[in-house]
Write a protein that binds this DNA or RNA. Structure first.
Lengths: 185, 185
DNA sequence: CTATGCGATGACAGTGTCTGACATCATCGG
DNA sequence: CCGATGATGTCAGACACTGTCATCGCATAG
């Protein structure tokens, strides 16, 4: 593989996470991350498109899982049901322990540029979910609304999960958010 | 006021918009914008927090309008009704002609960093709408869902408005999106 | 065993965004 | 006319990110 030690990418990620957590995101330079990982700044940018991308390694997998679940939903399921089931499924299985998510989120909440990236990832999820629904024959409007409102419910559920003093499960919050979404109409 | 010509801020905005539209966002530098406006790069950053902010001058007013409308909604209106009415109201009154919005959006669609900023603005709208609803006595969950799903409907409506070959009104699309949102539940 | 190609890294220069610090100039109130 | 105030200019600099080419290790063919 590499010229020196293996696992360059995960070493960079680890170094970045450590420094972001201790000094904060803005106050750590890419050069420092690379040095801590025993690599150069240039190599960091070969593994991550930019300084923020280190945070969002798992988002690709999340997106794939959601899309696959919606695509494989039973034929008789409507778009809203398919999306809701997909989010309930990943909420139950996919996410790391709440302590880890809380630390990660505290770094993100402290930096607008990280929030920007997070919102873009969620927007991409919505767009792909809508596309998956359209492939199932759902109209553009119906697909878009189902996907966007599902993501909206997830945003609310995730935030409440992170801030829940009672440490209830993410899947519980997701069900609550979806129930409230249905009730609102 | 200024040392030289007046209206520095609007001159900068005009110059930026012109250059963004002709050369594209990434291929125009802040120095070029400033020069075209007869100012220096440093002055540009005194009027706009960053290169992207030029695009989002109106978003503050949009946010204020929405929050005010929700705050002033009749007491008997539920959270979802208040939010829906607010979006229908601004959709009918606030937005520029579709041709202008289309050109603006084409620049944004061509640049992820601009989309990031746009999503942050919408997220801020959702957060403030939720806060306004809570001030009306609505529970946190109910307020968050009403605000986020309202923003979700607006995103869909706006996109469909921009891409509508029949040039139907934004308010029409907004009503359609809200109707679909209610129907989905 | 050697040559050769390939993929990952290093080295280096450069561009562009954004910030801090200080000087300068116009206008306005006294 | 003078000093305060606010907007601008000037300059230096940090830092993110990119392009380019050299270098090194590994695998594989011969």
């Amino acid at each position: 593989m590499g010229r020196w030690e293996p696992n360059a990418q995960s070493r960079l990620r680890q170094a970045a996470m450590d420094l972001y957590a201790s000094r904060g995101f803005e106050r750590t330079t890419v050069a420092e991350i690379a040095e801590k990982a025993g690599l150069t700044e240039r190599t960091f940018f070969r593994h991550f498109a930019d300084k923020r991308e280190v945070f969002f390694a798992g988002s690709e997998r999340l997106r794939e899982l959601l899309v696959a679940t919606v695509t494989d939903a039973p034929v008789e399921a409507g778009p809203a049901q398919a999306v809701a089931a997909a989010f309930e499924s990943v909420a139950a299985d996919y996410f790391p322990p709440v302590a880890f998510s809380r630390q990660r989120q505290s770094v993100i909440d402290a930096n607008i540029s990280l929030q920007e990236r997070e919102l873009v990832k969620l927007h991409a999820v919505a767009a792909e979910l809508a596309a998956a629904l359209q492939r199932r024959g759902v109209s553009e409007l119906r697909a878009a609304i189902a996907a966007e409102s599902g993501v909206a419910a997830f945003k609310v559920a995730f935030s409440r999960w992170i801030n829940d003093p009672d440490d209830r499960e993410l899947s519980t919050h997701m069900r609550e958010a979806l129930a409230e979404l249905r009730r609102a109409a």
